[in-house]
Design a protein around this nucleic acid. Structure first.
Lengths: 367, 367
DNA sequence: AGCGTTTATGAATCGGGCG
DNA sequence: TCGCCCGATTCATAAACGC
């Protein structure tokens, strides 16, 4: 499974491995513009004061590890600036970045990534279906975390599998609020003592949605704060290559064991619904050339209000207008644009049939 | 209704009025430490490029007002710094601040208010039950906005009516995600032409929850970006005093008229419709995301005649057909429609189990 | 009047390929 | 790099319309 990828004039990319060390140094050691997606779950800079107890006096196992302690906002901002800059360097021009955080750190991350030229595409709310309650009743239940999805720069051609996410959401466009349970039960990794192996292990469902929606099979996904390897595990299942970076040996041990047990889903299962945009383009003129429509034949608008005549060169002519199927449709409707394929119909056996049917016929022959 | 409040050695506070002018100047003219709560809905600094049309070719009425135009992040940051500082000065030591924004501006606001010493208590997500869709299918539906609730400083004794919010939430602790419809219908204020009076009017239900939860009757609530006066209207209903600041005369005209019609403790108006939805919809894709079904796993029709394979995006693939669980079921049976939830089964311990069982499992977790 | 259908609209950073 | 032009794309709600 471990492999490397070499691009023209660049050092090899260490794929499907966990790099050991500080994420900034390790990212700086990788070739620039070589990674398709970065998912980052950095330390949250939680400012917890003292211990927290549940109403039954049991102690809440808070995130108080040394790696999550920053002296001040300035320290945290420096850290954020440096790792984001390192991430930005290794990202391909059309690559994208996801970060996740809570109100303690996400505003600082969001502002800094805007400052560095990343272009925010959406902020996404992970709405936890089973959050920890607020035991003291002093605030609202902290029931969500925030993700930011950003392209490397404005205008970049980021990957977005719109139809796949729509399918995941039962045929309705995916929204920016995602309801998913927190990671527990069998998915939650335990250490030898039976304690949780990592304090903030993310659910695989979250990564599944991110990777299905914003990467393609074969893409390289890098996680600079790899932890117990959720990103790597889901990437492997989904046939994406991953690069993990993790400083703590104890997490790497758990992640390696976890990854060794993951199997990739079969190829057929990994293909996702695609949009029509991915279909080959068929010029309208081909319908005429192939005799599916005759020059002189009349087309009728879907609403029945207009008609136009087909010409031998694949243009239409109406009462006072001529041009492409799109131009004539837009002109007749007084609309800024028009998809002529779905706007025009022809008559067959007395019935109105959309010309798009003929396009589908040609596309079927192409396969 | 208009009155003033005088505190020891301080100028009078102009209550239940709309102050005319720039919010920074007007706040600076008020006595320090005199206000209990500030709710602020500042310009979002949207950076819209061209026109946007719906698939039916109608044009989206964009927020292109001059007051939302800032030349750069630096300009916007200066503006944010200045109005937040002015707000901070007039806030009582135990007072609190709410701001609302989208991903365009909320990260910059959140970072700046932390920099100034405000202490974030919660970030709250307003999940819109009826957001505008993403018409081009290029991103996720932007279905939420973010609010930040902060006390003036760490350790301050802010107001939080825990039980009141619990009651509003059917007896369970209020969470940080609030599902509320956008403001339209009869609540949406129109101008003389029948056009919306303000492009971004907020729903009263949102302010209702905020004021019930984080102020007491008799408190002074200030809104530096008053617009059409939603904050003042809800404050008046709930028996709080308000101070509005608004620069545009056209908005003030609408707000004055609106406020004149509001009556305190109009019980009926306070009732927030909390209509319970039937059963929450569970997309089939969630079974895959959550690992309850694996991509590549085979499903069998209840009658045992057909099988199909699960794909990573929550669609099925059969011998000659692919699509949703419902579509594939309908196609195989030659039926016009099919309830895939009851049609498909999977194998567990050698037995055929309906996939609907997994849906019930997820629904149980949601409660 | 009543019911079913059509239309309008909401804080939106909303193309891409080819010449 | 720019301009042209093909052609893909929407959900929930309420008001207006029509029979």
């Amino acid at each position: 499974m471990t492999k490397t990828k070499t691009q023209a004039g660049q050092a090899a990319l260490p794929l499907n491995q966990i790099l050991e060390g500080d994420c900034i140094e390790m990212m700086n050691s990788l070739p620039e513009a070589s990674v398709d997606l970065i998912f980052a779950d950095p330390p949250y800079n939680l400012q917890l004061r003292g211990d927290l107890h549940r109403p039954d006096n049991s102690k809440v196992d808070a995130v108080d590890d040394a790696w999550d302690q920053f002296g001040s906002f300035a320290h945290y901002d420096n850290f954020t600036r440096d790792w984001l800059a390192a991430a930005r360097r290794i990202l391909k021009p059309n690559g994208a970045l996801w970060v996740i955080g809570s109100y303690h750190n996400v505003f600082r991350m969001g502002a800094e990534l805007q400052n560095q030229g990343f272009w925010i595409l959406n902020d996404v709310v992970w709405r936890k279906s089973n959050p920890m309650p607020n035991f003291r009743g002093k605030r609202l239940t902290n029931a969500h975390e925030t993700l930011i999805w950003a392209s490397k720069s404005e205008g970049a051609k980021y990957t977005f599998n719109y139809e796949a996410l729509k399918s995941l959401n039962e045929g309705v466009q995916m929204r920016s609020d995602w309801v998913l349970p927190i990671c527990n039960g069998g998915e939650r990794l335990k250490d030898a003592n039976g304690d949780k192996a990592h304090p903030t292990q993310k659910p695989e469902a979250l990564l599944h949605r991110i990777l299905v929606g914003t990467t393609n099979p074969g893409d390289v996904v890098l996680d600079p704060f790899f932890g117990t390897g959720t990103t790597g595990a889901v990437a492997k299942m989904l046939g994406r290559d991953f690069i993990g970076i993790e400083r703590e040996e104890s997490y790497r041990v758990v992640a390696r064991k976890r990854l060794s047990k993951i199997r990739k889903f079969d190829k057929e299962a990994l293909e996702v619904s695609t949009s029509k945009r991915a279909e080959p383009r068929v010029p309208f003129g081909q319908l005429v050339e192939r005799g599916l429509l005759r020059p002189g034949e009349e087309l009728y608008s879907l609403n029945g209000r207009y008609k136009a005549k087909v010409r031998a060169d694949g243009t239409l002519i109406g009462d006072d207008v001529k041009g492409s199927i799109h131009q004539v449709g837009a002109h007749l409707e007084g609309a800024p644009s028009c998809n002529g394929w779905t706007y025009w119909t022809f008559k067959r056996d007395g019935k109105q049939v959309p010309i798009d049917l003929l396009r589908q016929q040609i596309r079927a022959e192409m396969n």
